[in-house]
Each structure stands twice: as C-alpha cells, then as structure tokens.
Design a protein around this nucleic acid. Structure first.
Lengths: 224, 224
DNA sequence: ACAAAGAGTATTGTATACAAATACCGCAGG
DNA sequence: CCTGCGGTATTTGTATACAATACTCTTTGT
C-alpha cells in the first residue's frame, strides 16, 4: 500500500465513505492531488478505480463527482448482493474444507465477542463480519464472483449508518451466521444459499430502518 | 472514441479477442504504445480497464499479461451470466413497455434474417444478439446489474468459436428469443427468468461442444 | 429582458523525462 | 547440474509540462 496510487485510492475512498466528500461533490484531480500529497497521475488512476467501484461517477465530459447513492440504488445493490452472496454460500457449502470452516467459525466468534460487550464494539463487529464473508467467498472459489461482489460490498451510506444498528440487529446477524455455519458443516448448499439470501435481505431492511430513523431525526433537528 | 486512451483500449482489446495477442503474452506498456501510436499514459489507462474486464491479469509485481481463460473460467463466467441475465430478464418482464418490446422484437427479427440466409451471417447474428440482450438490460433498469454483466459478456474464446456454431444452435437461439418475447409480452417475470437462464446455459454447452470439436481438430493436425 | 457569442478560467488528456522496481543473464561455487 | 549472487537491461511508477476541452461569466445584439 505504499505506492502513491494506492495511497490516493485509500485516501479518496475513505473521504467518500466518511462523508468528508459529500455526494455530488466535484472531484478535481489537481485539488485531490494536493490533498493526498501526490501528483495527478496516481490520482487519475485512483479515480478510475473508484469509478469502477461506482463510488464515483463521471459526466459525459469526463468530470468526476462523488456518486449519489439514493435509497433505490442501495436497495438495488442489496438485491444483487443477496443474489450473488447466496450463490457464493451455496458454492462454499459444496466445497467446504475443515480448515476453511475453522476460519469462518473463528470470525463469528470474534463477532460474537464484539456484540456481547456492555457497549457493542461496532468497529470490531464490522471487521469480523467482513472476514466472515470474505472467508466464504474464498471457499466459493470463483475469481469472477469475488470480483463482482467486490463492487457491491462497500457502500458509503451503509458504512455511516452501521453505527446506529440496534443490539437486536447485531444479535440476529450473529445468529444467522451460526446457522450458516451449521449449513456449511453439513455441506448443504441449498440451505446455505437460503440463509445467506435472507441474511442479506434482512440486513438491507435493518439498514433501511436505521436510515429512516436518521432521516426523521435530521428533519426534527432542521425544524428546531 | 477519438481519445487516445479509447483508441488504445479498443486496439488492445481487439488484439486480445482476435487472438493476435495470445493468452499468456506479456503486455509491455512501451511496446503497446508504439503499436497503438500513442504514448504510454493512455496505454496504462487502457490496461487498467482491460484488467477490470478480466481480459488482462497482473502479476504481484505489476506486469500485465493476456488473461488465460481456461475452460473452467469460461464455465464459471457462463454460470454467473446465467444467474444475472436471468435476474435481468425477470426485472425486464416486470417493467416492460411497448416501445422496449418493439425494440426487442426488431433485434430478433434481424437475428432471424441473418440465420435464414443460404450461408448464415455470423457477424450480423452476433450484432443482433448483442442488441437483443442490451435492450433487455435497459428495460431491467439497474445500472449496477448492467455494470456487473458488462464484465461477463465479452469473452475472448467465445468470440473466436462463435463462427463454428452449427445452424441448429443458431436456430435454437432464435427460438428461445421468441419464447422470451412471449414471456415479456405477458409481463411474466418468472417465465422470462427461467427461459433466459436456460438460454444462457444452453449457449454455454453449444460453446463447449464447438470448443471440444476445435480442440480435437487441432490435435489431429498436430499429429500429422 | 433574453439569447447567443466569446473571452478567460478551470479541468482534463497526452507526452515525456526520470526514478524505482523487477526480471533476465552470466558466472562462480557447491 | 543446480543454486545463489551481481550487474545490466527491461519494465513500471510518478511528476511535470503543455495541449485540448469544457465551464463560466460578461458582453452584445435583437
């Protein structure tokens, strides 16, 4: 990660995910280059990568802007993610090894530890959650499937609302992961697929609820 | 398409699809720049795009090579394409408009004309086929789904074997398209999905058969 | 007042030079 | 014959200059 273009990619990406660069903001190469402490060349490369991640859009005249993820876009992304992660879970169950299963169990153990603390540690939760899903994707053994899902997993809005999930939603995630592990242990592809699909779609509704809640709060605050 | 990086992209891509640059060949930026008549900067950009298309792979030390699509890779791509195009067909059926249906019908009419000639015109066939699927993707109305499928449709090996499909395979494609049109006309999502999934998977086996045939011929020729 | 035109500014595209990293090749030693 | 080690040649990464393009705001004509 020491190459300048990687630094630029990470820097710009985190500025977008954190909301420091709000949706619709123009991304001028020169300005970004200065903020990242590199020249325009690596910034250009980073912008192209972010564009293929759909975090950045370009006008027909090649100007770049922070992509605007409407609630419909998010729903769309979740729908596709449910489809593809379901497929990944099925393939993973059919190809599961004991070593991979251990890795998946370990990720969910860490996830469980994070949410059982007096105050749930959302950062650790997100981290363990990512590992859990990454391990499954590895076992699924399809470079292409992994590449497709990569563009769907990191969503700016989702990232920012994750911290507002209730404890119940976190617990349910843990439980569904445990059920997935059971399906993997039995090498039951269809079962794993069904649970994973439901898991993603439930996560979508958890997000939509949290998002609605935040929007209402914003409105109340704006009214004062 | 007049920008140098677009020219480079098209040029390199067609060199790969045509087999002029065989699988495994190294893609040195300097050499490509000379062949395309542009400088290294647009070539670099083109290579990154081709990499995200999975037509080019990079080693851990950043050298680029023409991707080597094994038969398993192709099977993998078709499997995902069947899943995603099935989804697209379902969405398209649910959102179908009369104008879009007319466009889809027109594409298949052109496709039918191409294969009914004394000698089937494979170029026109492929063109009309692309339009047919593109029209469906448009109606499906998901930018993300379109972006995901874009990386799966153009496959070097498939392109090269398309000319060896038998007339029967071409006719069957036409027939399946007609059945899809019937499903669209009735706005029947599940029906459209089922036909599309089957259509893609059958196309895969048509490819696999043609490919096997070519491989055997190559072996015979090598033995002489 | 409004639209079109145009100058000036901002932004992106391309070429090129140089720096850094990596691969290749030959040679010495086991 | 294989293995490890330098040194050289290739190849990629980055910065920068300049060209081309798009945007903005003012001016001018109707």
């Amino acid at each position: 990660m020491s190459r300048a273009s990687d630094r630029a990619y990470e820097a710009i990406r985190s500025m977008i995910l954190s909301g420091e660069l709000p949706a619709g903001a123009q991304l001028a190469e020169e300005a970004l280059a200065e903020r990242c402490g590199v020249s325009r060349t690596p910034v250009r490369e980073a912008l192209r990568r972010l564009e293929s991640d759909l975090l950045v859009t370009r006008t027909d005249t090649q100007r770049s802007f922070v992509a605007d993820w409407s609630i419909d876009d998010v729903a769309d992304a979740f729908e596709l993610r449910a489809l593809l992660e379901g497929k990944a879970a099925r393939r993973a169950a059919e190809r599961m090894t004991d070593a991979a299963l251990a890795r998946i169990r370990d990720a969910n153990r860490r996830l469980g530890d994070a949410i059982r603390r007096p105050v749930p540690d959302v950062t650790v939760f997100l981290d363990a959650n990512r590992d859990f899903h990454a391990a499954i994707l590895d076992v699924a053994g399809s470079r292409r499937l992994a590449a497709l899902l990569a563009t769907l997993i990191e969503q700016p809005v989702v990232w920012r609302t994750a911290h507002h999930y209730g404890r119940e939603a976190l617990n349910r995630s843990y439980g569904e992961h445990e059920e997935l592990i059971a399906a993997f242990a039995r090498r039951d592809g269809p079962w794993a697929e069904a649970i994973m699909t439901g898991h993603i779609l439930r996560a979508y509704h958890a997000y939509a609820d949290a998002h609605r809640g935040l929007a209402e709060r914003d409105q109340r605050e704006a009214a004062e």
